[in-house]
Design a protein around this nucleic acid. Structure first.
Length: 116
DNA sequence: CTCGTGACTCCCG
DNA sequence: TCGGGAGCCACGA
């Protein structure tokens, strides 16, 4: 059997996680990177999103930064991502931030409102 | 092979 | 509180 590894294990893990994000939920680059094996790999996650989303159809719009905001600059996809998230029911507050208490999703968790 | 860059995050002043 | 600088590692050319 062939391995589809033209990609690294890290990348593969990242892709798996991203494709596992349920609609109407969001996660952060750092969380994905952490589950992929690199707590510092947040940038790589972003890069993988770029590379992969261009070839595959990943729900890249469900990935945002740690502040709960869209990292993309206006004109670079910001409006698109925001719209896509709103289409799925994600709500932005007056500061354009997503409420993590309701929309943050962690790999491996079905729903679980992770409140302390 | 090497070099440059980046949809991030953390630390410090 | 907010801004700037450094680190990190994978992918593309």
């Amino acid at each position: 059997m062939k391995k589809d590894s033209a990609i690294s294990p890290f990348t593969k893990k990242v892709l798996k996680i991203i494709t596992s994000i349920p609609a109407g939920r969001v996660t952060t680059y750092g969380i994905i990177a952490l589950h992929a094996g690199s707590s510092r790999g947040a940038r790589q996650v972003a890069r993988i999103l770029h590379s992969s989303s261009r070839k595959y159809d990943l729900p890249w719009h469900r990935v945002i930064n740690k502040d709960g905001m869209i990292s993309l600059n206006p004109g670079a996809g910001y409006e698109l991502q925001k719209q896509l998230l709103q289409e799925e029911g994600v709500v932005f507050d007056y500061k354009d931030r997503v409420d993590f208490d309701f929309f943050l999703w962690w790999p491996g968790e079905s729903f679980t409102l992770n409140k302390n």
